Computed example of a mutant assay.
Amino acid sequence: MDQALEWAKTLLTFASPIAVLIVSANIERRQRKETDAKEERQKAEAKRDEETKKLIADLTADIKTIKDQLESVNETIQALQGYDKTVKEDLHNFSQSQQINAQYVHELAELVMTLAEGMRDQHLDGNITRAIASLRSFEHTTLTKLTQQMAKANSDD
């Protein structure tokens, strides 16, 4: 039995370093795998961070482009509003001049009719004087009103 113990002791003496070597190799392999896995995770995180930064930079550039376009559209809208205001004023002035023109033609037509009736009836004095006075009154009133409106429009500008 002593010899068996001796053999076991000798065998354990040779087996111990081998067992330590195997255990060390397993621990080192496991640590290497963990290190490799950790490096892979870090690379993946770095890649995700880089993609995120690139995406943020692209979005920032797109937002700036959209902002510039919106500012351009805003300027265009303001220019069009100014033009629209000018056109409305021009249309208003044109409408007023058309009304004045129509009224002036009406007054002239009344004068011509009065002259024609006066010539027909041979009563020229009173009727013609009233028609001319009416025409002159219309001209004076209209021209005064136009002068005031033009002065007001010039002062607004």
Results as ranks from 00 to 15, higher is better:
D68H: 03
V20F: 13
F138W: 02
N26L: 15
I128G: 01
H106F: 14
Q42G: 02
E89D: 11
T142F: 08
Q96D: 06
E45L: 14
I100R: 07
S16R: 07
R30V: 04
H106Q: 15
K88Y: 05
M113T: 11
Q69T: 13
A15I: 05
K64D: 10
M150R: 07
V73T: 10
S134M: 11
L111T: 09
K152R: 11
I132K: 14
A153R: 00
V23M: 08
T60Y: 02
D157H: 03
L70R: 07
I27Y: 10
T86C: 02
K54Y: 01
I100D: 12
Q148M: 09
Q69N: 13
N26K: 09
D36I: 07
A15R: 08
S24H: 08
I132V: 14
L70G: 09
K152N: 12
N127I: 06
K38H: 08
I18M: 12
A151P: 01
D121Q: 03
A61M: 08
A19N: 09
A133K: 15
S155E: 15
A133C: 10
S97D: 12
Q148I: 13
D36L: 10
V112H: 08
H140R: 14
I56C: 00
E71H: 08
D2Y: 04
I27D: 05
V112N: 12
N101R: 15
K145P: 09
N74D: 13
Q122S: 00
A116C: 06
E71T: 04
G126H: 13
A8W: 11
K85C: 06
L5S: 14
T13L: 14
K54G: 00
R41K: 10
S134F: 07
A151M: 08
A44Y: 03
A116K: 04
A102Y: 12
A131G: 10
E139H: 11
V105M: 14
M1S: 06
Q69W: 09
A46H: 06
E40M: 09
N101P: 04
A8I: 12
K67S: 05
I66L: 09
T144G: 04
M119L: 10
A25W: 14
T129M: 14
D2R: 02
D125K: 05
V112M: 15
A44C: 03
T52M: 03
P17S: 11
V23L: 14
K54V: 01
E45H: 08
Y83N: 15
P17V: 03
V23Q: 08
I27G: 06
L115G: 12
I77P: 00
N127S: 15
F14M: 13
E139N: 13
K152M: 12
L111H: 01
E110M: 06
A131E: 13
Y83P: 00
A37R: 11
D125R: 02
R48L: 08
S16Q: 07
G118E: 01
G118S: 00
T147K: 14
G82R: 06
A15W: 06
F94M: 10
E51N: 06
Q96N: 04
S16P: 02
F138Q: 00
D84M: 14
L143C: 08
P17M: 03
A46S: 00
I22R: 09
A109K: 15
S137P: 07
I63M: 03
H92N: 07
K88C: 07
Q103R: 07
D156R: 12
A37F: 01
L124P: 00
H92D: 08
A25Y: 14
D68C: 01
T13I: 14
T35P: 02
Q149W: 01
I56D: 05
L21T: 09
D125Q: 06
